[in-house]
């Protein structure tokens, strides 16, 4: 399916692999694809985000907060682990923010997880809906906004943008002329 992808969109899929790995994920998630799509400031996805007033870095922060690799203080308290005191002790040894910055390792090439596959499938569907010849990062962003319940879509929603707003921004960016 990648033959219809623009260079940017293809780069995003490759970059998502690195992002998933450095996040310590065991597979590529929809959120890694989303963050990869907006990583290049010239991409349709990044320019659309810019229209919505969202910086890629703050999107990354909210994706991480909503993602699966999250320390749930409430759940830990249920088994008698006080996350705050763990954090205090870890930071005493490893410095401020150490526990939150630490990520579990992952090995080898990561496969696309079910959510990432779903996102690519939705991107293809968006391309059909807009009668687009190619699939670019704008389609990836549109697809991310359609991922019900996934960290990718929740992060966008967290900024107060539903998929209609995202769609408007992407369409406006396309109209402005693609740089990809």
């Amino acid at each position: 399916m990648f033959e219809r992808f623009t260079r940017d969109a293809r780069d995003s899929v490759a970059r998502a692999q690195d992002m998933a790995r450095s996040a310590g994920a065991d597979r590529i998630g929809a959120e890694h694809l989303l963050l990869a799509a907006v990583a290049d400031p010239g991409s349709v996805a990044a320019r659309s985000l810019d229209r919505l007033g969202i910086a890629p870095s703050s999107l990354a922060v909210s994706v991480r907060a909503l993602g699966p690799d999250v320390l749930d203080a409430e759940a830990l308290a249920l088994v008698g682990v006080d996350l705050e005191s763990v954090r205090t002790q870890v930071e005493a040894t490893f410095g401020p923010g150490a526990l939150d910055a630490a990520t579990a390792p992952s090995t080898g090439r990561l496969a696309l997880g079910p959510a990432a596959k779903k996102l690519l499938e939705l991107a293809l569907r968006e391309a059909i809906r807009f009668a687009s010849h190619r699939i670019d990062t704008g389609h990836l962003l549109l697809a991310a906004a359609r991922m019900d319940g996934a960290a990718a879509a929740s992060a966008l929603a967290w900024f107060g943008h539903d998929r209609t707003a995202v769609e408007r921004a992407v369409v406006a960016t396309w109209a402005e002329g693609a740089s990809e």
Binding site: G24, D69, V70, L71, D72, A75, L76, V79, V81, L83, V86, V90, F94, A98, L99, A102, T103, A104, P105
Partner: peptide, 13 residues
């Protein structure tokens, strides 16, 4: 699940 995430992070550190 959270214990696992916690253990993984501590191991990496």
């Amino acid at each position: 699940r959270s214990l696992r995430v916690l253990a993984d992070r501590l191991e990496a550190l």
